[in-house]
Design a binder for these strands. Structure first.
Lengths: 211, 211
DNA sequence: TAGATTGTTAATCGATTAACAATC
DNA sequence: TAGATTGTTAATCGATTAACAATC
C-alpha cells in the first residue's frame, strides 16, 4: 500500500542476483535467447517461477517460441537492482577471510566496489591484491568521503559487536556479518548473517534429509 | 508420508543451527534458562516461532515462568541434527578463501571436522593452521578412508565443474559451493550455493528496501 | 494466589505450482 | 499452419502470526 509500484515479492528480489549471474554466464557463451525452461533446468528451480520472476522485471515480454533476450534481461535486472549507481563497500577485519574477500573480484559484477579493508592491528595494514588495508581509525574519514553504506564484517567473534558499533556510527546501513554472533543494531540498519559453519551444518541437515 | 516421524518443516530445520549457536553463546555466559521472548528478541525473529521450533525438538517442555533449560536444549538440538556422529569434510581449492576456511575452527561446534584441503597446484601443498593441504590426486584415497561426505568447493569458477565431478566420483553427497557457477550433479547430491557477491548484492537489495 | 510463560488451534499471509488461454 | 513458449488466473501448499487456554 502507499507505494504505487507493483510490489515485487522479497523472494523474487532475492533471486534476481542469481538470475543475473546465470545470464551473464550465458551471455559470455554467446547465447542470445534463453527459455524459462532452460533457465529453470540449469538453476534447479521451476519454469513457471522463472517466468513469473522475469515478467516482473523485464521491460519487454519474452517471445513465444524464442524465450527471453539475454542482453536485454541483463540490463533490466541491473536496472531493477539499481546497479547503475555503484555501491561502495568496505571490509572490517583483515584476517584470512577478510583478505580473501578483499582479493575477490566478483563483486564488480553486482555493482559493488570493495574499496578497502580496515583492521585494528597495525600489523595487518598494507595492501592485498591491489586494494588497501587501513588502520581502523581511518574508517570514519574514508567511509564518509566515499559514501560507504555497506560493510563486510570479518573480525573475530569477540570483536564483532564493538566493530559493529563503529560501523554504524559512520553511517553504514547494511552489514554482511561473518562473525558468529548476533549483532545489536539500531533500526534502519540491516544485518545479514553469513555463518559458514551454520551454512555447512544446514547443508548436512538437508542432505541427510529423512529425519 | 511413509515415515512415521513427525514431519519437521524445512524452515525449522534450517534454523536449528542458529538456535544452537545462540544457546551456546548464552551457556557460555552462564545462563541457565532462556525464555522464547528473549531468544526471539536477540535473534530478531518471532517468539511464537521460537516456541514452535523448540517444541518440535525439545525432549522436555519449557517451564512456564522460567522458559527452556539451556543445556538440555543444546543437547536436544545436537541430537536432532545428528551431531553425535561427526561428519568429516574436505576443502577443494586452497586459494585465499579455501585457506581461510581451513584455518577456521567454528565448524567443530556443529559436529563437523574439516580434515584437509586439496589443490591441483603443487605449490599450494603444505599446511594451514595445523591442517594439511594435499595434492588433488590424493583425494580419492583420503576421502574413502575417512568416509568424507561433505566438500567445500573454493576453486576458481573455471575449475568448478571439473572439480565437482571429481568430488562426486569419490562419493561425496553434499557440496557447499563458493564458485559462482551452477553445478551439474547427479541425483542424490545436494549443492548449496554460497556466492559472496550474490549475498552482498541481495543485502544491498534488502536494505534499499522500498523500490 | 497471581502472573509470566508455554503449547496449540485457527486464521492469515505469501509463495509456489497447476492449468490453460494467448501469441509469435 | 503447427507448435513451442509465454503470461496469468486459480488452486495448492507451507509457513508465520494471532488468539487463547493450560501450567508452573
Amino acid at each position: 500500500m502507499g507505494s504505487a509500484e507493483n510490489a515485487v515479492s522479497k523472494a523474487t528480489v532475492s533471486r534476481m542476483p542469481s538470475y543475473l549471474r546465470y545470464l551473464k554466464g550465458e551471455a559470455g557463451k554467446g547465447v542470445q535467447y534463453v527459455s524459462s525452461a532452460a533457465v529453470a533446468k540449469d538453476m534447479g528451480i521451476s519454469a513457471v517461477g522463472v517466468r513469473k520472476d522475469l515478467a516482473l522485471v523485464s521491460s519487454r515480454p519474452g517471445k513465444p517460441r524464442f524465450g527471453f533476450e539475454v542482453q536485454q534481461l541483463i540490463e533490466d535486472i541491473e536496472k531493477f537492482l539499481g546497479y547503475h549507481r555503484w555501491t561502495n563497500a568496505v571490509i572490517i577485519g583483515a584476517g584470512g577471510l577478510g583478505r580473501a574477500i578483499l582479493a575477490y573480484e566478483g563483486f564488480e559484477n553486482y555493482g559493488i566496489h570493495v574499496i578497502a579493508a580496515f583492521d585494528a592491528s597495525p600489523a595487518k595494514v598494507g595492501a592485498v591484491g591491489g586494494r588497501p588495508v587501513y588502520p581502523m581509525d581511518r574508517l570514519p574519514d574514508i567511509a564518509a568521503r566515499n559514501g560507504v553504506r555497506v560493510a563486510i564484517l570479518t573480525v573475530p567473534r569477540s570483536a564483532a559487536q564493538a566493530a559493529c558499533d563503529e560501523i554504524v556510527k559512520v553511517g553504514i546501513t547494511a552489514i554482511l556479518n561473518f562473525a558468529p554472533v548476533y549483532l545489536h543494531v539500531p533500526d534502519g540498519v540491516t544485518v545479514r548473517y553469513e555463518d559458514l559453519a551454520v551454512s555447512l551444518a544446514a547443508l548436512c541437515g538437508e542432505s541427510t534429509e529423512n529425519r
